[in-house]
Nucleic acid binder design. Structure first.
Lengths: 335, 335
DNA sequence: CTGTTAGCGCCTTCAT
DNA sequence: ATGAAGGCGCTAACAG
């Protein structure tokens, strides 16, 4: 149990201790360039002496600047988005902004509620992982008039700003890559979230037909990958290549293949998505789709901060693209 | 670009639209049990009509309840803590509290700054991953008089509340397990963060001497594990067992061993830490130290929420313990 | 059940 | 460079 809360120390107390007026103390802390150095020193000494902790809530109320940015993610534990979140957090912290975190749990219904909850905290900007689903929410956000960045997806009509890439294009690119290798008996292991399903749609569109598909609940992981592979082989025992909606899933597919004595890539090729930190170092190393996750977070932070400073963002819609890296799991030379 | 921000709609506007007083509108929204159903309906209709978004900042200022809890983590991308963070976020959201996220980047110097930043946002509680390092910070937090939960570690003198386990005990338990198997030529692959180093200290203490050790920068991952294994084998080519500070690191050690044609566990045994979602499904499956990560987050949320409600927490210091699960990577029967 | 009054702690505006 | 007043939007505390 902590010591009994001492009476709150406010800026008023600091000002008195420093022998200046309230507002001078406020300026010494928040806008020191207009205060004499001597005064600043006395105020800072008073802050030390009193153990003053500013109340940003109160300041924000008047200044209308909360110095918070909300980030809304489907789920925290999705490895996929961590690098983005990491750079976003870091970028915001560098600009002296804090991160308010919200989770939708992949549930579109909860999205609306989360948005409202977040908005009521007066963040100066909102960053979404993915697009905002409900048109109602999109309109509400536009009305709120604060910078909004949608990420990890693409549309020509974002709520406000966007930094991402086309999921469909990823799907068809992977399909094109498989076809270029002459693989006809291909399958897909995919999570059931919206973006993964779009990639799947792009994949089948490019292949030109339905392909054996194992669908698992998001967020995917290695265990689900093993199950998906079992499922796929039941659908087509002669499968030659599998496209996966995440590297975690792909690793599961790989492990299950190896557990069954299949050689990768000689017997079956595997491609992941996301270029997780482990993918390059597996045996065999995992071919995958590389997306600049850290870059997405960094740009999102930059965009929001720029708008918070009142600047106009030159390119409010950025397609960061993606590329397929060919490693051993789809290569000609096996591990 | 969003539409020009319309004049802020306040509760005042809602009250006028509903034909009631400001405070009645406030109560209809925040404490409906004392307002007549008819009035509530009219206020809610007015909220809909006006598109009102409450300003929680203003409310918090007066009520001294921010409905925010701060979580301070070393880094977001540490897979280890994700399950805890996940349940913490969920638990708080269920109690209608939001998560404010802060990162220290494993830097004790930044910890203090982060704490101050967080405190200035008036969170109603703070949850730490690990113990608070600096005595100065500990004292400051005690003074602040808000519920504090330290997690993932153990001490008899927590700042306030604690839910975790002894790192030293983990280290010596793993060492004891290795010894019980008769393995003498053992080594350690460890990250350089404080908790991992404590486990290492516990390990060596139980072994009774220094052991070959490969240290990598936190947060650890598969790639660092491969490097660590290379390092360890250089130190002792006849190594029989390796204890790792994370399952990610252990997987790297495993992959590197396999890449060198070593059989696991016949030639060399490997034990991880954390029981990541993939560990059970690797080939060979990974023996590891199981910690109830989700439980830690859940309990932390419960403790903070209870104290926010003014309740006293019966057991403010909880040792959740740990256990070693023996799988194939240290088992007698190989994969 | 509803309303009036008085701030929460700070920052903006206007003065000096 | 410093100060005095006023109010941000909301809710406790007391009335009716």
């Amino acid at each position: 149990m902590p010591s009994a809360p001492t009476k709150t120390i406010t800026l008023h107390d600091v000002a008195r201790a420093a022998g200046v007026s309230l507002i001078t103390a406020s300026r010494a802390l928040g806008n020191p360039s207009v205060v004499s150095p001597a005064t600043i020193a006395r105020v800072q000494a008073a802050v030390e002496a009193t153990g003053y902790i500013p109340n940003l809530l109160a300041g924000s109320l008047k200044s209308r600047r909360s110095r918070m940015v909300a980030a809304i993610v489907p789920a925290l534990a999705v490895a996929q988005f961590l690098p983005s979140l990491q750079t976003l957090t870091a970028g915001l912290a560098a600009g002296d902004y804090q991160l308010l975190l919200g989770e939708t749990g992949y549930d579109p219904a909860r999205e609306e509620a989360v948005i409202d909850t977040m908005l009521s905290r007066q963040p100066e900007g909102i960053v979404f992982t993915g697009l905002v689903g409900a048109e109602r929410s999109r309109e509400r956000l536009r009305r709120a008039g604060l910078p909004v960045v949608e990420t990890w997806d693409f549309t020509t009509r974002p709520v406000d700003m966007l930094v991402g890439f086309s999921q469909q294009q990823v799907g068809s690119a992977v399909a094109g890559y498989f076809l270029s290798r002459g693989w006809q008996r291909v399958g897909v292991a995919t999570a059931d979230d919206q973006r993964a399903m779009q990639r799947h749609a792009g994949f089948e569109a490019a292949i030109g037909r339905r392909v054996p598909t194992a669908k698992v609940p998001a967020p995917s992981n290695l265990a689900l990958g093993r199950r998906a592979m079992t499922d796929l082989l039941a659908q087509d025992p002669g499968l030659r290549a599998v496209a996966c909606s995440s590297d975690q899933l792909a690793q599961g597919v790989l492990v299950e293949a190896q557990a069954r004595g299949l050689r990768v890539p000689e017997d079956i090729a595997i491609c992941g998505f996301g270029n997780a930190d482990f993918s390059e170092h597996l045996l065999p190393s995992l071919s995958t789709v590389v997306v600049d996750g850290p870059g997405i977070g960094r740009r999102a932070a930059d965009m929001v901060l720029a708008r918070c400073r009142g600047e106009t963002v030159a390119s409010p819609v950025v397609d960061v693209g993606f590329r397929i890296v060919e490693r051993q799991s789809t290569g000609t030379a096996a591990a």
